[in-house]
Structure formats: structure tokens, C-alpha cells
Design a protein around this nucleic acid. Structure first.
Length: 260
DNA sequence: ATTGTGGCCTGCCCGC
DNA sequence: TGCGGGCAGGCCACAA
């Protein structure tokens, strides 16, 4: 599913359309338009303009328009793919369909050459105009150790829940959270505020290194833990049978031996 | 404010 | 072979 890593791939892909002129917007699914937006208003806002920057904060992809026009915010839920000029931003999207159905196109921007579209079977993504970026926390690719400390401090919530709280740390989804906590040897259910300074620094180190490795390997499903997230799965580090729980409302796999 | 829960959406997979 | 139920999780509304 798209987490911050996949959205970063989408952002890079979206850079292809910069400086092209939007000639049409097709939004066949009103459900997909968020924040009171309607198809006609979206088209009015961007047709004739050009996208001049493709930015990303967490799992939110932002396309800025020229001449102080609006910013288009794109969300992908867990099954949304970005497709630019017929090229998909990722080819292996976990938990989504491997099929390719044009009927799943929920929004499409057509340019003077080529197009950009979101293909989302489950319709959990969406499009919003001028999204509120200030409600998002520190981005997972640039967060500092001090910022991570601030995101976790004083909380009784599970550390995994805080990591996935987009208002605290933006871009961490379920797979990334499990992977980095496993790498750092920290129990996902630990109270966030109970982590010591050395543990926070260790978590930060593994967050940066783990995300970096997964970006290079090709996605949030390429972590060392991923293949063992299944019944009968064993810890790749010490061989202990993994434990499946619900933490922070999400299916969580962890090693009872080395994650403390 | 913080934390937890349930619902939304729908393709897919398993068991009967 | 068909069918029904459960599952996946990002996000949001809502409750305590």
C-alpha cells in the first residue's frame, strides 16, 4: 500500500508533467473529491494552468499551479496508483489488485501532451484543493532525532500509534512502522513517552536507515520483516516465532524476543 | 487535548 | 463451481 515511500516515487513520476498545460480534468467519481470540492470547480481551478512543482509531505502529493493558482492535493489511500503518460508509479502495490482497469480511474488531468491519473480500485484516496499542510507532522524522510523525540514525548499511546499519527510523523504507514520498530528492537506497544533518550536515538537511526533501504529496494513492502508477516512467520534476526497483535488499531507483527 | 474505536470503500482469498 | 464472510489499512468522524 502506498506509504510515504510510494508517494515519493509518485512525486518523482509527477515531475514529468511539470510545465505542461492542463487542457481538461475528468473527475467521474464525486466521492473521490474531498473538502466540498466538485468536478466543475476543480476544472475551473486548473484548466489553462501549468503545474510548476511536485511536492510531497508524508503521504500527501502536492501539485502547485502557476501564477499563484491553487495547489492540488492528491491522496492515494491504500490502493491508489499514480499513472503518468501510461506509466505507473509503482508496479507492485501490496493489498491492491494486480489488474489494471481503466474503470478504476477516479481523476485524470489531461495536458497539451499526455496525462496524469489516479487509478484506485477501493476509492480510499481523494483529491482536495489547497490542502491544509500545517496539520501534518515531520516528514519521515527528513525528521531529526530531536523532532522524533518531540513527536513521542509525554504520550501514553503506543509508540507505533504515534509513529503512524500523521499529525506527528508524516508518511509512516503500517508496514514501515513494523519494520523500523523491529529494526530498532522496540516493542510497538510500548508507551511512546516511556522511550529513553538512547532508545529514541536508536529508533531515529533505524527509521532513517530502514526507510532509506526500502526506498532503494523499491517500496514499503521490501523491508526485512515483510516476508515473515504471516502465520508461522519467524524473526529474521533471531528465529523466534513472530507475534501478531492489534496495536494502534492496526495489524502488528513483532518479535517477542528482541523487541522490548 | 488525547486516545481508542468503528466505518468507509471493494477486490481478493479462503473455506464450505 | 459458486457463494459468503473476513481481511487489508489510510483516513475521518465520533466517543470517552
Amino acid at each position: 500500500m502506498p506509504e510515504g515511500i510510494e508517494i515519493e516515487y509518485y512525486r518523482r513520476l509527477a515531475e514529468r508533467v511539470l510545465d505542461r498545460r492542463v487542457v481538461a480534468v475528468d473527475a467521474p467519481d464525486p466521492w473521490f473529491l474531498k473538502g466540498g470540492l466538485i468536478g466543475g470547480a476543480l476544472a475551473d481551478a486548473v484548466v489553462g494552468r501549468r503545474f510548476v512543482a511536485a511536492r510531497r509531505v508524508g503521504k500527501l502529493l502536492l501539485l502547485d499551479t502557476d501564477a499563484d493558482g491553487p495547489t492540488v492535493g492528491l491522496r492515494f489511500g491504500m490502493t491508489g496508483r499514480l499513472i503518468v503518460d501510461g506509466v505507473a508509479g509503482v508496479d507492485d502495490l501490496q493489498y491492491s489488485s494486480q489488474r489494471d482497469e481503466p474503470a478504476w480511474d477516479r481523476v485524470a488531468f489531461t495536458f497539451d501532451a499526455g496525462d496524469l491519473r489516479i487509478r484506485d480500485p477501493r476509492r480510499l484516496g481523494g483529491v482536495v484543493l489547497d490542502p491544509d499542510e500545517s496539520s501534518l507532522g515531520f516528514d519521515l524522510l527528513t525528521i531529526s532525532a530531536a523532532q522524533l523525540r518531540r513527536a513521542l514525548a509525554g504520550s501514553t499511546a503506543p509508540v507505533k500509534a504515534r509513529l503512524m499519527d500523521q499529525a506527528r510523523v508524516a508518511g509512516v504507514g503500517n508496514l514501515i512502522a513494523d519494520e523500523v520498530l523491529w529494526r530498532a528492537g522496540i516493542d510497538p506497544a510500548r508507551e511512546a513517552g516511556s522511550l529513553s533518550d538512547p532508545e529514541i536515538r536508536r529508533l531515529h537511526k533505524h527509521l532513517r536507515a530502514g526507510v532509506g533501504a526500502m526506498i532503494e529496494r523499491g517500496g514499503s513492502h521490501t523491508g526485512d520483516l515483510f516476508a515473515e508477516r504471516r502465520p508461522g512467520g519467524r524473526c529474521p534476526r533471531d528465529g523466534a516465532p513472530l507475534v501478531r497483535r492489534t496495536v494502534g488499531g492496526r495489524t502488528t507483527w513483532s518479535c517477542p524476543r528482541h523487541q522490548r
